[in-house]
């Protein structure tokens, strides 16, 4: 039983990332009708917002320490971050330690700007083109973005640890009556799950309870009628592209302590996220979230040793098998609507 709960927890935090990326993908598809293959790259760019802010916070000046030697036997050059000089060593160290959560503030405007620039600069020219063209151009853009990141940050992973207060794990099992040590779970993964829930809730609340959201939903349902009412729906959809980019970016920001970011991390999530969108139902926001969690949990169970021994290789294909079964039984996905991406 403890193993089952452990894998459900694993699936929930994995599903959180899938759900956040799929949510952004669905927002873009639902508003602009664009199949955005660069969405994984937006997740990756979010992660690199954290790396960038960490580097800004650790900008340093060099002090020569005569008492220590470097690898060539010369006096050691020690880097002292400017934040130590400005705020004192303990406060400066705390600021650097909290670089990941602070990156949320940094990433929101950056990612919205990237999203808006992407939509205005490139994607809008492909609205009336076939989906195949949109896929090709956004996939190409994804490759360009990841090569730019590789050029500036290198190919290796760059550690971006969680704040000291969230490093380590706690005994989740003891909380729910299991033996001590039966279910150990990392603090940061719980933080990630809670963050994803809040972000998903915020997106739904924004769409549901604001005038802007109401207009966007109306535009998603009937774009022409909304335009005939004199509303500039294009401008709102552009902003929605920016918001979708920010959602993917924030998913990437908070993911950095779970897996050290590298330039390729967006591609690792892209294919699975598309499966999540299709399984959830094209254009369905709740479907994307539900499918994200369902497939995340399934993937976790399929990775159990007992399952792999019984069905070798199942861990690598379970998501796609599930997608086949769901699409055979529910061709529009779990919560798909009639008429979306159908002739």
């Amino acid at each position: 039983m403890d193993q089952i709960i452990l894998q459900i927890l694993n699936g929930l935090d994995k599903g959180s990332a899938y759900a956040l990326i799929a949510l952004g993908l669905t927002l873009i598809f639902g508003t602009l009708g664009v199949v955005n293959f660069a969405h994984g790259a937006l997740f990756m760019l979010g992660a690199f917002c954290t790396v960038t802010l960490s580097r800004i916070l650790t900008l340093s000046h060099t002090v020569i320490d005569e008492s220590r030697k470097d690898f060539l036997g010369n006096p050691l050059k020690v880097d002292v971050p400017y934040v130590y000089d400005w705020f004192g060593e303990s406060t400066g160290a705390a600021i650097i330690d909290w670089a990941v959560p602070l990156s949320i503030i940094f990433a929101i405007p950056v990612m919205i700007a990237i999203g808006v620039a992407m939509e205005r600069g490139l994607v809008k020219h492909f609205y009336k083109r076939p989906h195949a063209d949109q896929i090709l151009v956004t996939f190409g853009l994804a490759i360009v973005l990841q090569e730019i990141i590789k050029y500036y940050f290198g190919a290796n992973q760059i550690p971006a640890p969680a704040p000291e207060a969230f490093i380590g794990s706690f005994d989740f099992g003891a909380l729910i009556g299991f033996d001590a040590g039966a279910i150990i779970y990392p603090y940061w993964r719980i933080v990630y799950f809670c963050f994803a829930m809040i972000l998903i809730g915020a997106v739904f609340a924004f769409l549901q309870f604001t005038t802007f959201g109401m207009v966007v939903r109306a535009g998603m349902a009937d774009r022409e009628t909304v335009q005939l009412l004199g509303i500039n729906i294009d401008r709102r959809f552009t902003l929605m592209f920016g918001i979708a980019a920010a959602v993917a970016g924030l998913a990437g920001v908070m993911y950095t302590p779970i897996n050290s970011p590298n330039y390729h991390m967006g591609m690792d999530f892209l294919v699975i996220s598309f499966v999540v969108v299709v399984v959830g139902g094209m254009g369905s926001l709740p479907g994307a979230v539900l499918a994200g969690f369902v497939l995340g949990i399934l993937e976790s169970f399929a990775s159990m040793r007992q399952v792999i021994e019984f069905l070798p290789g199942i861990n690598q294909v379970v998501i796609y098998l599930a997608a086949i079964v769901i699409l055979l039984t529910r061709p529009r996905g779990l919560m798909g609507r009639k008429g979306v991406m159908e002739d």
């Binding site: 193993q3 779970i258 040793r305």
Partner: peptide, 16 residues
Amino acid sequence: PLAQTDFSSYVAPVLN
């Protein structure tokens, strides 16, 4: 899998 990025599902059962 070589393409695996998140190893939590593989690591979580190790302790027990």
